[in-house]
């Protein structure tokens, strides 16, 4: 084993696994057969679990590998691909959904942890032809470009206005004990968990400001 291998725990573990589970591989491009895959239970076999998500008002019964994130449950199992995978590590906000009334990163939550939870995704806010006021404001203000961060920005902004309404403070507050102000700087700070690499920020804040102003 060379030095770079010695540095790598994943590879070490792979080596250990390899000792007791060697399977002959074909010389050509390897493709497994169904029989080879139907082996007896093994320690890395997926653990399946039944759960119900209440997504956009509809109960969705699923049986999922426990490793499935809420994000992948939505995208790959319910085919609600409006929620985006940008980084899968909580560093971009493209996967923002509203779960239990709060915006969260769906990539950093396991689906099984949300058994029974209400989840609102972008598809639950509005549809083409019946846009949510925030979606309509994003269109009017051109508050997007490539569109990939957009559902996350919109879900985040809808939940963010609720947070403001409930008096949740932010880093932008001059006095953290005071009720938060509805200023552009407050909105910017509160939306900073949603990265837009196209750089639509200036327009996004204008879209949100318009919706915020129209609401009591």
């Amino acid at each position: 084993m060379n030095e770079s291998d010695a540095m790598n725990p994943a590879r070490r573990e792979a080596l250990a696994l390899g000792r007791d589970m060697l399977v002959g591989g074909a010389a050509a491009c390897w493709a497994g057969s169904p029989s080879a895959r139907a082996a007896s239970p093994r320690r890395d076999a997926p653990v399946m679990r039944k759960l119900t998500l209440r997504v956009n008002g509809a109960a969705q019964a699923l049986e999922l590998d426990t490793r499935t994130t809420l994000l992948d449950a939505l995208r790959e199992h319910l085919h609600l691909t409006g929620t985006k995978k940008g980084c899968d590590h909580g560093q971009c906000g493209a996967c923002t959904v509203i779960a239990g009334g709060r915006r969260i990163n769906a990539c950093l939550s396991l689906a099984v942890m949300h058994d029974g939870d209400e989840v609102t995704t972008i598809e639950g806010l509005g549809k083409p032809g019946h846009l949510h006021p925030m979606q309509a404001a994003f269109v009017r203000h051109d508050a997007y470009q490539c569109g990939y961060c957009t559902p996350g920005q919109i879900c985040s902004s809808v939940a963010m206005l609720e947070e403001l309404r409930h008096g949740i403070p932010s880093h932008a507050a001059a006095d953290v004990a005071a009720a938060p102000a509805w200023t552009p700087d407050e909105l910017r700070e509160r939306m900073s968990g949603n990265i837009c690499r196209c750089g639509a920020y200036s327009n996004i804040i204008e879209a949100i400001t318009e919706v915020a102003g129209a609401q009591p």
Binding site: I122, E123, G126, P128, L131, T150
Partner: peptide, 11 residues
């Protein structure tokens, strides 16, 4: 815009 803002534009 309506596709992108509703998550129905397919990537």
């Amino acid at each position: 815009g309506p596709l992108k803002t509703t998550g129905t534009a397919r990537y």
